[in-house]
Design a protein around this nucleic acid. Sequence first.
DNA 1: ACCCAGGCGGGCG
DNA 2: CGCCCGCATGGG
Length: 287
Amino acid sequence: MVFMLVKDFSPFFTFSSGQVLNFIGEFKQKPIGISFATTRGIFDVRFSEVGKHAFEIAYDYKGAYSEKEARKEVMEMLGIGSNMKEVYSRIGTDAFMKKAIKAFYGMRLTQSDPWITSVSFIISQFNNIKNIRNSVQKMMKKFGKKINDKYLFPTCEKIAKASKSDLMSCGIGYRYKYLHEFANTCLNGINLNSLYSKTYEEAKKELMQFKGIGDKVADCILLFGYGKGEAFPIDVWIKRVVERVYFHNKKKKISEIHNFASQHFGDLAGYAQQYIFQYARTYMHRN
DNA sequence: ACCCAGGCGGGCG
DNA sequence: CGCCCGCATGGG
């Protein structure tokens, strides 16, 4: 069992925000524990509140990780490597952002691995967060290796070789063809790890070659799977709010919103996006 | 019985 | 380019 103390952290906001879909267990206002499955192991994490926005984190793990790798994995998964004072001072540059930061203080950007993130966000299109999590859980149960009472996240080989009816039984619907093709290419063609060293633009271009990965899903993968902080996923909510708050409610093209995000938030655009998204979902309505 | 969900691909002008 | 349409499925 390993312990860490983390400040400016809210496990509840971090994990109820729809960045990570492969954790096990429900989140309540006072979270006590959570488990993550990767393709290599299971992490059990517990949180104890020790002060305002401060938590003691205890974790244990099983699987093919050295202690050092496990620690890095946990830090990435919880997003506890960032200096939030600095993040907030750089994205909190106007009244709206300050309000969003105050409302979700301690929400971190998390990072899972590229394969898990890609699968999750290919399923996410034209879907809702509850369904996405359900599908991910079903895939883990159906195709993941069982460790005690839990399941690993399935490897790309498992998904590539799954029968159509088995994969369809996870409730992924018409996205089956996207996921099937993606898994097969990951098995035989592209190595997802090769995108770490590419620039944001290059990596995005490559991801968007896949059917089922468009502008928004590619940005989610780059942000939540590769930690490329300048990615700014634009879904219907982000588009609406940015137009409303920053453009006097005028319609803007996706490319114009990307330009705005890049100029306004730079390499912290992804962080800004997460706060805008949560604030919009929680406190604003559709029109 | 409807309606909606962190979009995307394809077809059209 | 911009616009428009269909899309599997589960939950409210």
